[in-house]
Design a protein around this nucleic acid. Sequence first.
DNA 1: TACGGTACCAACAGCGTGTTGACATAGTCA
DNA 2: TGACTATGTCAACACGCTGTTGGTACCGTA
Lengths: 218, 218
Amino acid sequence: MSLSPTADKARLTRSRRGSRPSGDERELAILATAERLLADRSLSEISIDELARGAGISRPTFYFYFPSKDAVLLTLLDQVVAEADAAAFAPAHEMAGDQEKPWREAITAFFVTFRAHRAVAVAAAQARASNPEVRQLWARVMESWVQRTEEAIQAERDRGTAPSGVPARDLAVALNLMNERVMHAVFAEEQPSMREAQVVDTLLQVWLSSIYHPVALA
Amino acid sequence: MSLSPTADKARLTRSRRGSRPSGDERELAILATAERLLADRSLSEISIDELARGAGISRPTFYFYFPSKDAVLLTLLDQVVAEADAAAFAPAHEMAGDQEKPWREAITAFFVTFRAHRAVAVAAAQARASNPEVRQLWARVMESWVQRTEEAIQAERDRGTAPSGVPARDLAVALNLMNERVMHAVFAEEQPSMREAQVVDTLLQVWLSSIYHPVALA
DNA sequence: TACGGTACCAACAGCGTGTTGACATAGTCA
DNA sequence: TGACTATGTCAACACGCTGTTGGTACCGTA
């Protein structure tokens, strides 16, 4: 790393472990503290002072790195969402011979990713109500998933493998919202919810039935 | 409309015609003010002072009637839930010849009732995260609807009109959570959601497909 | 008339947020 | 080297909202 001879002079002489951590380290420390504390309590129950102390700085200094608690959560959510997006659409699941497999893989990918960051997922769902930026980020993300779902449903209908029913868009919205809500219930350990092991099978059952075997409504 | 058990606890003040409005009138005024203000803003954005002013009293006097903002919402929610419960299970929808009709009527009943009190519904969903009493009330209510759904699904399976698939309980949980989430999205005018006219048909489609035409999972 | 329950509020205490202004330290350039 | 600028840092303040205290006014009953 330190290629120049003048660089380690400065490093070795003065800046032993006693000197201040860098700004980047501080920012990461705040993020890590936030995710850690969110495992136990909601964001509104966590004060900025706690976040700051956890990162080894004072409350006013917190404002140097983030404009608010919510901004911290927004950063965390951004990371998790990017991870989920990458996981769910990485190998561009093709509708080959098997009808079930690609749907199962996509649902599983979301489930696994959000389960790994359940604290962030639950906190974000709550913050959505009060914070316009979180709401907007989540809306954008949901919208993109809904559109992919709608396109996949429409493709199946066009291929003749799925019959028509309610508009593909509405069905896609309902199914994606169901996934969001069921996963949230499981992660937040709500009453009523279901065992983690049952989540993917149950959701998949509902998706496949309503896409491939819609009933004719009166 | 004191249908609820928790709402009509012993506050049997009769209306003495004084210069001041009676306690009952004040309490109702607070409830009415709350529902009115909730149409525009979330509960956390409404101060107790506003609630008090709206009811024509001072902030400390508010505490004479309710221990907190959340208690006001809890009372409102109690009323709406009682109304929905009554509407959805009033004529004890029988599974007669028609498979679709009873499910459609139940889903429609919920939709109509909550739509009439959308502000309370949306506020309650938000308060659930932070308030244990709201959470508990909603959990109890959802649990009872899930149980009724599970029993109805199981009855259809026992009669041979619906094949087996995932456990009836898990399916009932997923379907009820979907209804909750979709209605919330519509009432809160979220992006993505759907037109109000499409809600019942879309939800019904998913319910009937997954109950009567479950696919065989791998 | 006086007593107790109901209804009411001014004022206070406490907590959390967001801001200000001053100060420290490290790198840069004259 | 010494002055300038960036980046960090924080004690102390202003503010808004919540929940409480301690006291007042009204009214039905005995």
